[in-house]
Amino acid sequence: MSATARKTAPLPDDIRAMKGGTPIVSLTAYTTPMAQMMDAQCDFVLVGDSVGMVLHGLPSTLGVTMEMMVMHGQAVARGVRSAMMVIDMPFGSYEEGPAQAFRNAAHLMRETGAGAVKLEGGVAMAETIAFLVARGIPVMAHVGLTPQSVNTLGGYTVQGRGAAGAALMADAQAVAQAGAFAVVLEKVPQGLADEITGAVPIPTIGIGASAGCDGQILVVDDMLGLFTAFKAKFVKRYAELGITGEAAIAAYAEDVRARRFPGPEHVFADAAP
């Protein structure tokens, strides 16, 4: 089942059922216009906490708040019809324990209409995931490079190489057993990503992982070339809208200073025609 052929948004179980089939397509979205642009092409749209870095100029995702996620989630919800909306739980909103996680997840879903939440962590979060799922909160998991743990991971480095691969495999298996309907694998070696995809019964969504994953996700501003502060190795630029936009703004500024804009076609006559 593809997004282009679907008339109604899928549910988490529909995404789970795509395991091993046509690859799942996903992008992040933070605004209504961007959500509208991707809605027909994506199986699910993620309101990512990457919004902190991409739109708010924060140095990491750690400064993102629940209020920010609600605001951007509401904006994205106005732009999606055929894709499922998943929303990130921000740093500090779920790590304390299952009860805290439920209160905040329920708040996010109630305020935004999201179909599911996403949270970071493997074995350590399995109990929380099971608690949420048992209480009607669908959960997408996220293992490998978990940006909210950047300070303890020592930076944005590849996760799971060598002996560390066993622990990452255990993380993926733990979240699947806990009831997550899918798991994001971020910055994971290709071979390990393929092993995990073959070992867990839920779809794997790769970002800097492997084409063998059950689906892929990118930050939309990265793939469109709008976010230009840096470019990760795993990003493929499908456009250079940042460069195009800068050129357009420069042309506008030049026209204004030369009094070429506004032209006769852009202003109003003193008397109605």
Rank of each mutant, 00 (worst) to 15 (best):
residue 2 S to M: 03
residue 2 S to F: 09
residue 7 K to Y: 01
residue 10 P to Q: 07
residue 11 L to F: 01
residue 17 A to F: 08
residue 21 G to M: 12
residue 22 T to S: 10
residue 23 P to I: 04
residue 23 P to C: 05
residue 30 Y to H: 13
residue 34 M to Y: 14
residue 37 M to L: 15
residue 37 M to R: 12
residue 40 A to V: 07
residue 41 Q to N: 09
residue 46 L to F: 07
residue 48 G to N: 09
residue 50 S to P: 13
residue 51 V to H: 06
residue 51 V to W: 04
residue 54 V to D: 08
residue 55 L to S: 10
residue 57 G to C: 02
residue 58 L to W: 03
residue 72 H to P: 04
residue 74 Q to D: 09
residue 75 A to K: 09
residue 78 R to Y: 02
residue 78 R to K: 13
residue 79 G to V: 02
residue 83 A to F: 07
residue 88 D to L: 03
residue 89 M to F: 05
residue 89 M to G: 01
residue 91 F to R: 04
residue 93 S to Q: 11
residue 93 S to C: 09
residue 93 S to Y: 10
residue 95 E to D: 12
residue 100 Q to I: 08
residue 101 A to F: 07
residue 105 A to H: 00
residue 111 E to D: 00
residue 113 G to H: 08
residue 116 A to C: 14
residue 121 G to A: 08
residue 123 V to S: 05
residue 126 A to T: 07
residue 129 I to A: 05
residue 129 I to L: 09
residue 130 A to E: 09
residue 131 F to H: 11
residue 131 F to M: 00
residue 132 L to N: 06
residue 134 A to V: 02
residue 136 G to S: 10
residue 139 V to T: 09
residue 141 A to V: 12
residue 144 G to L: 02
residue 145 L to R: 09
residue 145 L to T: 06
residue 147 P to M: 11
residue 148 Q to D: 02
residue 149 S to M: 10
residue 150 V to H: 08
residue 151 N to T: 14
residue 152 T to I: 15
residue 159 Q to D: 01
residue 159 Q to N: 02
residue 161 R to H: 11
residue 162 G to F: 14
residue 165 G to R: 05
residue 166 A to P: 00
residue 166 A to N: 14
residue 167 A to K: 12
residue 168 L to N: 09
residue 169 M to F: 14
residue 177 Q to H: 14
residue 181 F to R: 03
residue 183 V to D: 06
residue 186 E to K: 04
residue 191 G to Y: 07
residue 194 D to R: 12
residue 195 E to N: 01
residue 197 T to M: 01
residue 206 G to T: 00
residue 207 I to S: 05
residue 208 G to E: 02
residue 210 S to T: 13
residue 211 A to H: 08
residue 215 G to H: 06
residue 217 I to N: 10
residue 218 L to Y: 10
residue 219 V to L: 11
residue 222 D to N: 07
residue 224 L to V: 10
residue 224 L to E: 00
residue 225 G to I: 04
residue 225 G to N: 11
residue 231 K to A: 12
residue 231 K to N: 13
residue 233 K to L: 03
residue 241 L to Y: 13
residue 244 T to A: 15
residue 246 E to Q: 13
residue 250 A to S: 07
residue 254 E to A: 15
residue 255 D to A: 12
residue 255 D to E: 12
residue 256 V to C: 13
residue 257 R to E: 10
residue 258 A to P: 02
residue 260 R to C: 04
residue 263 G to F: 03
residue 265 E to P: 03
residue 270 D to I: 10
residue 273 P to L: 06
